[in-house]
């Protein structure tokens, strides 16, 4: 393993630790009694006291944080004041839906973005290129919740082709995935085009063409392979944005995922759930960034050597 990845592996738990401290402190900084806040404003005094003891809020701050961490490692984030269920259970129930939505959206985004970017780069300066670039700029400016609402009105309300809300069948995935995936697709398309254009002007591409290789071979075997590093980086970096976008998309489509869970939690000031879901998303984003770093060193061995 190279030095860079080793450093990243050390960084991951430290960043997670600081993030967990921020998330933990956030609720403590609120005006008022944290036990009352965590138990809910309607809770009676005995419930508040029980929460205080369970969360160790009667102990010193550092000790409280240590207990929070110990519980968090076990996946114990307390009880949701909204549902009365443990936050762990709530997350376990909802997370598979978000994972499924994020995966299908990202597959769509990568497929569309890569294809559009490759086509645009291959026809630089043509109408097709201008069309792809203009569409990508436009797609990056459309609010996904508006697109979702308009698509819902047309396909679900007027035509009745697709279910309006929920996640009952594969048909329920179509609109949320497409509307959520459009913005990352635009970013991927622009990066693919820019990265491919840079590579296509290199000498070794001219050499490959001079050898008589077909355009497809030059494109996919020589150019794309070398253009992949920034594309993979942008794909990885955009995953955080996709998770963020999922929060609103899930609310629009009443999707039973963690995005909707956190929005409902914010409305109800359900801090135990907010803490749990926030920490989980931070963990996912950090892991995703690490995965991208590993992928990049696999794709481009020179990076492995440079960073070693």
């Amino acid at each position: 393993m190279n030095q860079y990845l080793k450093r990243r592996l050390v960084t991951l738990p430290v960043v997670l630790l600081i993030a967990s401290f921020l998330i933990f402190s956030a609720v403590r900084f609120l005006p008022g009694d944290p036990a009352r806040i965590m138990a809910g404003m309607q809770a009676d005094q005995s419930t508040v006291e029980a929460v205080r003891v369970r969360l160790g809020l009667d102990r010193p701050f550092v000790e409280q944080y240590a207990l929070f961490l110990k519980n968090a490692v076990r996946g114990n984030f307390g009880i949701s004041i909204r549902s009365g269920k443990p936050v762990r259970e709530e997350i376990a129930d909802r997370f598979p839906y978000t994972l499924a939505l994020a995966s299908t959206s990202y597959c769509f985004a990568i497929l569309l973005g890569l294809t559009a970017g490759l086509i645009a780069a291959g026809s630089q300066g043509s109408y097709v290129d201008h069309f792809v670039i203009s569409s990508a700029v436009a797609a990056g400016s459309i609010p996904n919740y508006w697109l979702a609402l308009m698509a819902m009105t047309f396909f679900c309300v007027h035509l009745g082709w697709l279910p309006l809300i929920g996640a009952e069948s594969w048909r329920s995935y179509l609109l949320p995935s497409l509307t959520l995936g459009l913005m990352p697709a635009a970013v991927i398309a622009r990066m693919t085009r820019a990265s491919m254009l840079e590579v296509l002007h290199q000498d070794y591409i001219r050499t490959a063409r001079a050898k008589g290789l077909s355009n497809t071979k030059v494109y996919l075997k020589h150019a794309l392979k070398n253009a992949l590093v920034p594309i993979v980086t942008i794909i990885g970096m955009n995953f955080a944005g996709l998770l963020g976008g999922a929060v609103i998309t899930e609310a629009v489509f009443s999707w039973p995922g963690i995005g909707r869970l956190i929005v409902d939690a914010v409305r109800f000031r359900d801090y135990a759930t907010i803490q749990g879901v926030t920490l989980l998303t931070v963990f996912i984003v950090i892991s995703m960034n690490l995965l991208v770093d590993v992928l990049i060193t696999i794709i481009n061995p020179r990076i492995r050597i440079d960073w070693a």
Partner: peptide
């Protein structure tokens, strides 16, 4: 490490 909107929600919650 915080997805923008999640950090925003955390701050809005506070």
């Amino acid at each position: 490490a915080f997805p923008g909107i999640v950090l925003t929600l955390l701050i809005v919650a506070i």
